[in-house]
Design a binder for these strands. Structure first.
Length: 418
DNA sequence: TGACGTCAAGATCCG
DNA sequence: CGGATCTTGACGTCA
């Protein structure tokens, strides 16, 4: 079982640059694509360092990659680059995927929308082809609109899938959505197209099938649709953000619920793609929860990254977690993350923020110059007086961390989470 | 016609 | 002028 996350990672320079249609010159598109490949490689490197073997590549990799305005032969131009990145991921045992969003509608009654969807699928397929990946690296697609007649809409989907070229079709996987096509309908389309099914748990909970079969049932049924050449079955897992509109993803994954889910899958070789705001952070959390080697150093490494965040949220939790990790022979993964999540959900008071900032300042106070010393005390005084912000303090400390090349702080999440 | 979701570019505001 | 904050863009469907 592999556990992964989508598109971007907290603490990694992996953002995808874009531009608007008006100034999408070929020069700009070339430059952006090159920068985005740099970002992709940094993300892959991070995944390898972190033991993450499942990752979704952002659709923004090539700006306007499916738009006629982009006439770049980018798979040729960046062929070497793509192959190098693909090889790196493959040799680390990584499984990659892409996921066109809600606006890629293959079953539209409008010809031009279908053509655009096909172009978009071609674009996504070119990413995976360019990276040199086989058909176990998937393109996950929703069915599309209902148009007041699901039967006809499903018929159009089945018909249009058959129009796709074989190399692309071999990569395609279909997913249940939270609005229109529930899992039983998607399974029906799978029967008629041979496409494997990604079961999305949260979509199912919001929009279940008419017979209300259990999710355990559907996970098993969906797993049967995956052939050998498709690789391991895959599910999407997310949790509802409390008090937000149904389907909104939670900021982080609650571990008890996740472990209940994952333990029921553990014998099936199913991969779990997390959809959650804190991305890689939850992936590492869930990997640690399911780890075979229950070594405390996993949690200690996490603590090293989170400790100053915890301190600025709650000194009390900071103490509790330190005490928890003193028992060197145990592996209190659930207690650890429960305390961590509880702390991170608390409001940051200015007093606690300054306290946290002063701990971090401790790394620099001997090497800092006079101007920097004055600046730090001006900011901390200013926070109490109301004319400086916690953000100002943290971005100043971030500058110092980079300037003085503090490796321990540079891998900390202190500068990336508020 | 706007809401939906997502991210970053672009625009504007602030001291 | 630099940094923080708001708005826009790109996509298609549906109320």
């Amino acid at each position: 079982m592999d556990i992964g996350y989508a598109c971007i990672a907290v603490g990694v320079d992996g953002s995808m640059g874009s531009c608007n249609l008006r100034n999408a010159s070929l020069e700009r598109l070339t430059r952006l694509t090159e920068q985005n490949l740099d970002s992709l490689e940094r993300l892959i490197d991070y995944n390898i360092r972190s033991g993450i073997h499942l990752f979704r590549i952002s659709s923004d990799l090539v700006p306007f990659g499916a738009n006629p305005v982009n006439t770049l032969d980018w798979t040729k131009i960046f062929q070497e680059r793509l192959e190098k990145i693909g090889e790196k991921a493959l040799s680390a045992g990584m499984r990659l995927s892409v996921h066109p969003g809600q606006y890629t509608v293959l079953n539209s009654p409008k010809d031009e929308v279908v053509r655009a969807a096909m172009a978009d699928l071609e674009y996504h397929n070119k990413i995976l082809d360019g990276l040199g990946l086989d058909s176990s690296h998937k393109i996950i697609l929703h069915i599309g609109g209902g148009y007041g007649d699901h039967r006809a809409a499903m018929e159009r989907f089945v018909h249009n899938v058959k129009e796709l070229k074989p190399g692309l079709r071999d990569r395609l996987v279909i997913e249940n959505d939270q609005r229109t096509f529930q899992i039983a309908e998607v399974m029906d389309i799978s029967q008629r197209t041979g496409l494997p099914v990604v079961f999305d748990l949260l979509h199912y909970l919001i929009h279940p099938d008419a017979k209300r079969e259990s999710w355990e049932f559907w996970v098993k049924e969906a797993a049967k649709t995956w052939r050998t050449q498709d690789g391991n079955p895959k599910v999407h897992y997310s949790q509802q953000a409390p008090g937000r509109t149904p389907g909104a993803h939670s900021t982080t994954i609650g571990l008890e619920k996740f472990m209940d889910f994952a333990e029921k899958l553990s014998s099936t070789n199913t991969d779990i793609m997390l959809e959650v705001k804190d991305k890689n952070l939850s992936a590492v959390k869930c990997l640690n929860a399911m780890a075979q080697d229950k070594k405390i150093n996993r949690l200690e490494a996490e603590w090293g990254r989170y400790k100053y965040n915890v301190l600025e949220h709650s000194p009390n939790h900071y103490k509790k977690i330190r005490a928890l990790l003193n028992g060197k022979n145990s592996y209190p993964v659930l207690d650890f993350y429960n305390l961590l999540d509880e702390a991170m959900a608390m409001d940051v008071t200015s007093g606690n923020a300054i306290n946290g900032g002063q701990h971090v300042w401790g790394y620099f106070k001997d090497q800092a110059n006079q101007k920097e010393k004055i600046r730090f005390s001006t900011i901390t005084d200013g926070i109490e007086a109301g004319n400086a912000t916690i953000q100002m303090m943290k971005s100043f400390l971030f500058k110092l961390s980079k300037k003085y090349q503090n490796d321990y702080l540079n891998q900390s999440l202190y500068f990336y989470l508020s």
